[in-house]
């Protein structure tokens, strides 16, 4: 099992969610996050006061999938999240040791 963590542009959330639903991925965790990479922040000046945007608002999506699904998932996310411009985001793939569904105690792929 792998956890796929994707950082995407906020307005791409619906597209990515839809793409993952089409793959049959039902559950995901979505967070509003801020950060920067090559796309840097900037500052605006209004009436002498500086308004600095140092961390750029992004969306983080986390899904856990079976190993066999990893490539497809990555591909779908890339297609859906891509604008071709800077700041389209990144995807991290992390190995997962174990998944447990709290309600039933199921483990492994049954619990995904």
């Amino acid at each position: 099992m792998k956890k796929i963590e994707a950082i995407i542009k906020p307005f791409k959330l619906d597209d990515v969610k839809e793409a993952l639903n089409e793959l049959g991925i039902q559950g995901m965790t979505v967070s509003e996050v801020k950060g920067y990479g090559r796309q840097k922040g900037h500052k605006e000046i209004y009436r002498g006061a500086e308004y600095i945007v140092d961390f750029i608002p992004k969306i983080k999506i986390e899904v856990v999938v079976e190993d066999g699904m990893v490539e497809q998932t990555i591909e779908r996310i890339c297609t859906a999240a891509k604008t071709g411009k800077l700041g389209d985001g990144k995807i991290f793939v992390v190995p997962i040791e174990q998944v447990i569904r709290v309600r039933t105690g199921e483990r492994g792929k049954d619990a995904i």
Binding site: E32, V33, K34, E44, Y46, Y51, V53, F55, P57
Partner: peptide
């Protein structure tokens, strides 16, 4: 929240 506020302010400018 601060996240939405940052997006909105950026657009406003």
């Amino acid at each position: 929240n601060e996240w939405t506020a940052a997006l909105l302010r950026d657009l406003f400018f």
